[in-house]
Structures are given as structure tokens and as C-alpha cells.
Simulated assay, not measured.
Amino acid sequence: MSPNTFRMGDYRCLKAIRGLVQAVTGSETSSDELDCLNRLIEAARQFERMERQATLPMDVI
């Protein structure tokens, strides 16, 4: 079994990094780097959602 790529908190960290990149490049700028960050943010968001669901008792799900 391979280790997880993401950890809890990565979603928020990646969003902050995207904000810094957009502050430097301009919020209307579209780039391969921003596209990559957006994909990473979405994957981290999904990971964190799955992790939260995995820790909930079965009667809550």
C-alpha cells in the first residue's frame, strides 16, 4: 500500500499558494501553473472530504 499523497490541511495550504500566485500574476491570468494548482486543490478537497467521512461513525453517514 502506497502512502497518501495528501494530508489534512493541504487543501487550505494549496488555496493560499494559489492566492499568492494570483496576487503576483494577476487574478485574471490563466496559466498552466494555475490550472495545475486548481487540479491539486480539487484533489486535496476530495481527499479531505473522504478522510472526514472515513472517521465518522456509520450511523452519521
Rank of each mutant, 00 (worst) to 15 (best):
M1K: 10
M1G: 07
S2N: 12
S2T: 13
S2R: 13
S2K: 11
P3C: 10
P3V: 08
P3F: 04
P3D: 13
P3Y: 06
P3W: 05
N4W: 07
T5K: 11
T5D: 07
R7V: 05
R7P: 00
R7Q: 09
M8A: 09
G9T: 02
G9V: 04
G9Y: 03
G9S: 03
D10W: 04
Y11I: 02
Y11V: 04
R12D: 05
C13S: 14
L14T: 00
L14R: 00
K15H: 07
K15M: 12
K15Q: 13
I17A: 05
R18N: 05
R18A: 06
L20A: 07
L20T: 08
L20Y: 05
L20K: 11
L20R: 11
V21W: 00
V21A: 02
V21F: 01
Q22F: 01
A23G: 08
V24I: 15
V24A: 09
T25G: 13
T25E: 15
T25L: 15
T25K: 15
G26T: 03
G26Y: 02
G26S: 02
G26N: 03
G26E: 03
S27E: 15
S27R: 15
S27M: 14
S27Y: 14
T29C: 11
S30C: 07
S30I: 08
S30A: 12
S31C: 09
D32K: 14
D32T: 13
D32V: 06
D32N: 10
E33R: 04
L34H: 02
D35E: 14
D35L: 14
D35T: 13
D35H: 10
C36G: 12
L37W: 04
L37R: 04
N38V: 11
N38H: 06
N38R: 14
N38W: 09
N38M: 14
N38S: 15
N38G: 11
R39A: 10
L40V: 05
L40A: 10
I41M: 02
I41F: 01
I41W: 02
I41Y: 00
E42Q: 12
A43E: 09
A43L: 07
A44E: 02
A44Q: 03
A44H: 01
A44W: 00
A44C: 08
R45L: 04
R45Y: 09
R45K: 13
R45F: 01
R45S: 09
R45E: 10
Q46M: 10
Q46I: 14
F47W: 05
F47M: 10
E48Q: 09
E48A: 05
R49C: 06
R49Y: 08
M50K: 14
M50I: 12
M50T: 12
R52M: 12
R52W: 05
R52N: 02
Q53M: 12
A54C: 09
A54L: 13
T55D: 13
T55P: 02
T55R: 15
T55V: 12
L56A: 11
L56S: 07
L56Y: 06
L56R: 15
L56N: 04
P57E: 03
P57L: 03
P57H: 02
M58I: 06
D59K: 12
D59T: 08
V60G: 01
V60P: 01
V60Q: 05
I61V: 12
I61L: 14
I61T: 03
